[in-house]
């Protein structure tokens, strides 16, 4: 079972506040899920390079289209055209607003 400290570390990494009461339950739940999904590690045939190996030609032929990059058309667009007319709706969603500005917390602080 994963430890209380591990749960608290995960919560910190994930930026989630969890209550003390919740930690015990999370230890139990996350451990049982990890036990289940951990069965993959016991599969000797599953090697992480497998996806690069070529299958039979029949398999290859039937396999879905190969990954390829999708680019949008390289055509100029007027600045801000995706947002045109939506500025006020976007501002209205700000949690704290001053005029047209979204008020956010000071990030850089002086060392005392």
């Amino acid at each position: 079972m994963i430890s209380k400290e591990e749960v608290l570390k995960l919560a910190e990494l994930a930026r989630l506040k969890v209550s003390d009461a919740e930690v015990g339950q999370l230890q139990k739940d996350i451990s049982s899920i990890l036990d289940y999904v951990g069965q993959l590690a016991q599969q000797p045939g599953l090697t992480t390079t497998q996806r690069d190996s070529a299958g039979s030609s029949e398999e290859e032929a039937s396999r879905a289209a190969k990954p390829h990059n999708v680019m949008r058309a390289d055509t100029p667009r007027a600045a801000g055209d995706m947002l045109a007319g939506k500025e006020e709706a976007l501002r209205a969603a700000f949690p704290t607003r001053e005029g047209s500005y979204n008020v956010v917390r000071t990030i850089i602080q002086k060392d005392e």
């Binding site: 919560a11 994930a14 989630l16 999370l26 999904v37 993959l40 599969q43 599953l46 992480t48 497998q50």
Partner: peptide
Amino acid sequence: RRRIMLGTYVLSSGYYDAYYAKALAA
């Protein structure tokens, strides 16, 4: 919250190969 923490766990350094890389192979 549970799934976010689980996702954070399987992507953590040291666990990636045992979980995420295996899942991609599967």
